[in-house]
């Protein structure tokens, strides 16, 4: 009976601690031996002076130490570089059978004539999956740091943003608008071309995605945040972003499954679809950075 109650109390305390309601300092969650302070505490001024002294000493010594470290590092690296194999020779150790294999069978194995695309999407797709997750998490981290809501925004900031917007509305940036009006269709066209032709020409998910994101940024900068909201609001943005990552995971899983089990692949344009998913993730990442940096919301 008492044991049960003990456990219940322990659980309650643990949840309270995890929730951050209470610090477990002198509770029984962990017990520390408490020593009496060894020194007599010096006076406040003494303490202050010593701290300042330490900071000054740090600032005096830090540049010297840093410079020495940099010089030593560069010297070591330069001597290493001198004994590296020559630049651009065909029988360097890096040009081994792996790259030969990729070049020889890449087009057959993956159906992509551009071997770089075949490598990052086909042979080493797990690497790209991890990288898509990195981009996803980077946007999430920037969101944590910069997203505005009612709690962390002061009245002053809100008024400042409103004033900026009104100013932008009242005298419009004519040159930017006209240039954007002409350029944006071509940028989107080029982005889609690069995205869809990653198999046969230089380009692919990463390049096309960044160009698409740059086009979105130009649109948002030229025509204002309001009109961008019509094209992409917050819900749609997170839906597209998550959809891209999930699509990549599902398609690549399917790709591995079919390839490993020797099943017939009815989807011949598999690489194209995977490339498209990567492009969606990258474009959303680029636009998300811009929106969060400029206004603090998407």
């Amino acid at each position: 009976m008492s044991k049960d109650r003990e456990r219940a109390r322990f659980t309650r305390r643990l949840t309270a601690w995890v929730d951050g309601e209470r610090e477990p300092k002198d509770q029984t969650l962990f017990v520390m031996e408490q020593h009496p302070p060894r020194h007599v505490r010096q006076s406040e001024e003494e303490f202050q002076r010593r701290e300042e002294d330490r900071l000054r000493k740090f600032f005096n010594w830090y540049p010297i130490a840093a410079a020495v470290i940099c010089a030593v590092l560069v010297a070591i690296l330069l001597t290493t570089v001198m004994s590296m194999p020559g630049f651009g020779e065909e029988d360097n150790p890096i040009n081994n059978e792996v790259s030969d294999r990729y070049l020889e069978y890449g087009a057959e194995d993956t159906g992509s004539e551009n071997v770089v695309t075949a490598m990052i999407i086909g042979y080493r797709g797990f690497d790209t999956l991890g990288e898509s997750c990195v981009l996803f998490l980077a946007v999430a981290a920037v969101m944590i740091l910069l997203l505005r809501d009612r709690k962390n925004t002061s009245e002053l900031e809100v008024r400042q943003i409103e004033r900026d917007e009104a100013e932008a509305m009242s005298h419009e940036d004519l040159i930017l608008k006209q240039v954007a009006w002409v350029l944006i269709p071509f940028i989107f066209l080029f982005a889609i071309y690069v995205l869809l032709n990653g198999e046969t020409s230089p380009g692919g998910g990463f390049s096309g995605g960044t160009i698409l994101g740059a086009g979105l940024i130009l649109f948002s900068a030229a025509f204002g945040f309001r009109r961008m909201q019509v094209l992409m609001n917050r819900r749609r943005y997170s839906a597209v972003r998550t959809f891209g990552l999930l699509l990549y995971g599902v398609l690549y899983g399917l790709y591995i499954f079919i390839g490993a089990n020797g099943l017939p692949n009815y989807l011949t344009g598999m690489i194209l679809l995977i490339d498209l998913a990567v492009g969606l993730v990258v474009a959303c990442t680029m636009y998300g950075f811009y929106a969060l940096f400029s206004r603090g919301e998407i």
Partner: peptide, 26 residues
Amino acid sequence: YINPIPSGLVLTGIVVSVSITAFSLA
């Protein structure tokens, strides 16, 4: 042909470096 492996590695690296930059600027 040139070796495709370093190109692929650098391609992923460039895009990751942007997100690192964005995070530190934030």
